[in-house]
Simulated scan of single mutants.
Amino acid sequence: MTTGRKKTAGADTSQAAPGAPASPASLASRHDRTERLDSHVLEALVGYNTRRAWSMISAVFSERMAPYGLKQVDFSVLSLLGHNPGATSRQLCSTLDILPPNLVSLVATMDSRGLIERRPHPRDGRAVGLHLTPAGEKLVHEAEQAVVQLELEASAKLTTRERDTLIKLLQKIYL
């Protein structure tokens, strides 16, 4: 009589029946797969650590901004316009490091959603200033509150001083 279990080099390679208790060998096998790998080289890299932190925050950001229909770049543009009424597309591209063609479609989408409006620039007759509509102001106010809260949650293991230091250090890299 066979049990359907196959042993190879001391490892249990069988699958337990659904609901059946796991054998000690299968638990050990699962443990081996979840054991922490030596990542000391990666963990000494600024980019790796930044990417890992960004991945965690980005996932929560996407989840929390879904009800507002905003992606990260949308939020950034709306926030900038909320605090800098009349900013031009050129200023937004420069500040956010966005290519102009990418911003054109983004602005068109926000305009069609009734979140922004274009007005002649008061000092440059060739430029157009971008302004939030009342609906855009309401949306950016709510979205900013949600983002501030998620950032506080994401950095809860840091003291206020550590959080401020982290932000300043990261800014030294890209400013």
Rank of each mutant, 00 (worst) to 15 (best):
Y68T: 09
E151R: 10
S79T: 10
E142P: 02
P101R: 09
R30K: 11
E137H: 02
D111R: 13
T133M: 01
D32Q: 08
S89M: 13
D38N: 15
K138D: 11
I173Q: 09
S155G: 02
K7D: 01
L169F: 13
Q149T: 03
P120Y: 03
L158Q: 06
G125L: 12
T34A: 13
M56L: 11
L45A: 15
E142M: 09
A11G: 01
P122Q: 08
R126D: 12
Q145S: 12
G114E: 02
D74S: 08
K6S: 09
Q72R: 12
L81F: 04
L170E: 15
P18I: 05
G129H: 02
Y48M: 01
L158R: 04
T8W: 14
Q72C: 03
Y174M: 10
R36T: 04
K71P: 01
I116A: 07
Q149C: 00
V104P: 00
T109D: 13
V46N: 10
A20I: 01
V128N: 03
V140G: 00
D32V: 03
K6V: 15
M1S: 13
L78P: 07
E142C: 07
L78S: 06
G10D: 05
H131K: 06
K172M: 15
R52A: 08
R33D: 11
R119P: 04
T2P: 07
P134E: 05
V73C: 07
R123T: 07
P24M: 04
A135W: 01
A156R: 11
P67C: 11
G69A: 11
L45H: 14
P120V: 03
L169N: 15
K6P: 00
E142H: 10
L130Y: 07
D111P: 00
L37Q: 13
L166M: 14
A156D: 08
M110R: 00
S155F: 06
S155Y: 03
V128F: 00
K157H: 05
D97C: 12
A156C: 10
R126C: 07
M65P: 04
A20N: 06
T165F: 09
G19L: 13
L37M: 10
H83K: 13
A9P: 01
K138G: 05
I167E: 10
T133I: 01
A16Y: 07
P21D: 14
V148E: 06
S39T: 14
K168Y: 04
